[in-house]
């Protein structure tokens, strides 16, 4: 056993570590916290923000509050960033069509321009993740194998290994990713919409997010070498096919075999 390890067992060592830890935490916070705030790069004009505010008051303020401060069920939108608005509105989840366990993908109700204006307004309320640029969304730029590993550990438990989606508690679910645009996938990772946690650039770097997109792009394009994929749902659908297709075919042949010829 090394000398360091031996000394670690000293009762004072724990106290020292805790003290040190507290000190470092305080300093660390103070030093690093503001750095996340400059994630938003504001390129929007004042006019856009003004238009966005009108849209916000008309479409969002009933739930999120006049100043986007949030109410009851609806969270505060201060600091959620343009990416969050672009995702929620761009996939039709917001404005919320009807209440339910979770907001679901729906027909988009605002135009692209209106979405951009609304995003600009919300971004102006407080710094947050911005809409990703095209270069981080290019599947060609990512490493699909690395993306597969990141996806498996961070995403597959909810979205299934093939991105087919899965169940969460009380009627909520992680959606199928097959038809979600790369921009929205990226935005979901940085903003953590609804039940989904946030995967900030500090724990999964933009390059790694591109890897994930590369992986999803690959499995989308990948033909199923074994034949029909059966919804990529695994053993449940395989079991049903064995019963319904396999057994029906075989019993059909058996009935023919046992029937008297005319």
């Amino acid at each position: 056993m090394s000398a360091l390890a031996a000394r670690r067992r000293h009762p004072l060592a724990t106290a020292l570590i805790v003290l040190l830890g507290l000190l470092v935490t305080g300093v660390g916070y103070a030093a690093v916290m503001p750095s996340t705030a400059d994630a938003s790069t504001s390129t929007a004009s004042a006019d856009d923000i003004e238009q966005g505010k009108k849209l916000f008051l008309a479409n969002c303020s009933t739930c999120h509050g006049i100043d986007a401060e949030g109410r009851n069920q609806a969270p505060s939108l201060i600091g959620v960033g343009a990416a969050s608005v672009d995702f929620q509105v761009g996939t039709g989840r917001m404005p919320l069509a009807m209440s339910g366990p979770q907001a679901q993908e729906a027909p988009v109700r605002l135009s692209d321009e209106q979405t951009a204006q609304l995003s600009a307004y919300v971004a102006s309320l407080g710094a947050g993740p911005s809409i990703p640029s095209q270069d981080v969304l290019d599947p060609e730029a990512g490493d699909a194998s690395k993306g597969a590993m990141i996806f498996r550990t961070n995403c597959a438990m909810c979205h299934n290994a093939a991105g087919a989606g899965g169940a969460l508690t009380r009627g909520k679910f992680a959606p199928n990713l097959d038809d979600v645009s790369y921009k929205h996938i990226y935005e979901a990772m940085v903003t953590g919409p609804q039940s989904m946690p946030v995967f900030p650039d500090t724990t999964i770097t933009p390059d790694e997010k591109t890897d994930v997109i590369a992986y999803l792009a690959t499995i989308r394009e990948t033909p199923n070498p074994g034949g029909m994929a059966l919804g990529k749902l695994g053993p449940v659908s395989e079991g049903l096919v064995a019963w319904i297709v396999g057994l029906t075919l075989l019993i059909g042949f058996a009935v023919w075999l046992g029937a008297k010829s005319s």
């Binding site: 670690r8 935490t25 660390g28 916070y29 996340t36 498996r152 550990t153 999964i204």
Partner: peptide
Amino acid sequence: AGDRLMLDPEGGPIKASDMVLGSV
């Protein structure tokens, strides 16, 4: 005690500040 928390699968330590609210 004292083991750094390393990201799975990428590897690499994490600073407290890296963890934004709602992140995993």
